[in-house]
């Protein structure tokens, strides 16, 4: 039971990453590799700040701000520098690696014995692992509500139109470059905060903790979409969180089956690849019919 609660807590904390990438990947149609850098950047900034005596809340906020700046740079490279989206993201991600080393001065910093968001009186009274469920829920609810409200404003609709048909958006007077930059900023801000939360939850920041984050984020988005089809926009935002939780439960299952933890990234990639191929597989092998046949009464 404890393991399941822990997986749910992890799913909720990591959901912020999925939500951030949803804005760029699904709404703006922009595969933003920056997140692989922003995630450990958020972690590095938060942990270093806390070790320097900054309050955990402020340190988490710093992580968000620095993520926003990273997103801004990718956005400028793409819109003003005319560098292709994938490459712009990879450039910033690569640059951030060095910056992270500068911030942390070494490849790993522990938060042992320091204050963090998960260490307080209220949370310590909760049953084991419920601290991450509480903090995860708190953050994901706040940001899901914020994004949901924003997307349903006139501004948000222009943002969605930018991703859906940039040429049309421009012809309606929408400043598409500005929208893309802003989307990348908010997205990377969320990813930075997610990095800060995960680092505080784990008790350390590591230079390599960004590896594979884009796969985790995509898995949350795509598992949510594959399981809950035909959703409204608001429901889709919630489905990202559910997808993130299901992904963690899947990983738990895989580990329970005796797989090596070193293989986690390999397993994550395989899970994601299968999820992404499902629509094609469904078509090719007529999966639905085969599955239904299995549960129907025989003639």
């Amino acid at each position: 039971m404890n393991m399941i609660v822990s997986a749910i807590g992890q799913g909720l904390l990591w959901a912020l990453l999925g939500l951030g990438l949803y804005l760029t990947f699904r709404i703006l149609n922009f595969a933003d590799m920056t997140v692989e850098g922003t995630f450990p950047l958020g972690a590095a900034v938060a942990v270093t700040s806390i070790t320097q005596g900054v309050s955990p809340i402020l340190a988490t906020l710093f992580a968000g701000v620095i993520g926003i700046i990273a997103g801004l740079i990718t956005g400028l490279l793409y819109t003003k520098g005319k560098i292709p989206s994938l490459l712009a993201g990879i450039l910033v991600m690569t640059a951030i690696y060095s910056i992270n080393l500068r911030i942390m001065s070494k490849s790993n910093i522990s938060l042992f014995g320091k204050a963090n968001l998960f260490v307080n009186k209220f949370l310590s009274n909760l049953p084991k692992y419920f601290d991450s469920v509480f903090i995860g829920l708190l953050f994901i609810i706040i940001f899901t509500l914020f994004i949901s409200f924003s997307l349903n404003t006139n501004f948000g609709q222009a943002f969605i139109a930018t991703g859906d048909n940039p040429q049309m958006a421009k012809s309606l007077g929408i400043k598409t470059d500005r929208m893309i930059i802003l989307g990348l900023m908010i997205s990377n801000g969320l990813v930075g905060i997610c990095g800060a939360l995960i680092a505080q939850n784990n008790g350390y920041a590591d230079i390599n903790m960004g590896i594979g984050t884009i796969v985790i984020a995509l898995a949350s988005i795509i598992i949510g979409e594959v399981i809950f089809k035909n959703l409204t926009l608001n429901q889709r935002l919630v489905a990202v969180t559910l997808g993130s939780i299901i992904y963690r439960l899947l990983l738990l299952l895989v580990l329970q089956l005796g797989f090596n933890t070193n293989d986690l990234n390999l397993i994550s990639a395989i899970v994601l690849a299968i999820c992404m191929m499902l629509p094609q597989l469904e078509k090719k092998f007529n999966l639905k019919k085969v599955l239904l046949k299995g549960v129907r009464k025989h003639d």
């Binding site: 409200f149 349903n152 404003t153 006139n154 609709q157 222009a158 309606l172 007077g173």
Partner: peptide, 18 residues
């Protein structure tokens, strides 16, 4: 949604519910 976008053609898109 498309019609509403077009109704606001050339206008500043505000942060109010649509």
């Amino acid at each position: 949604e498309n019609l509403l976008l077009a109704l606001k053609r050339g206008e500043k898109r505000n942060f109010l519910p649509r």
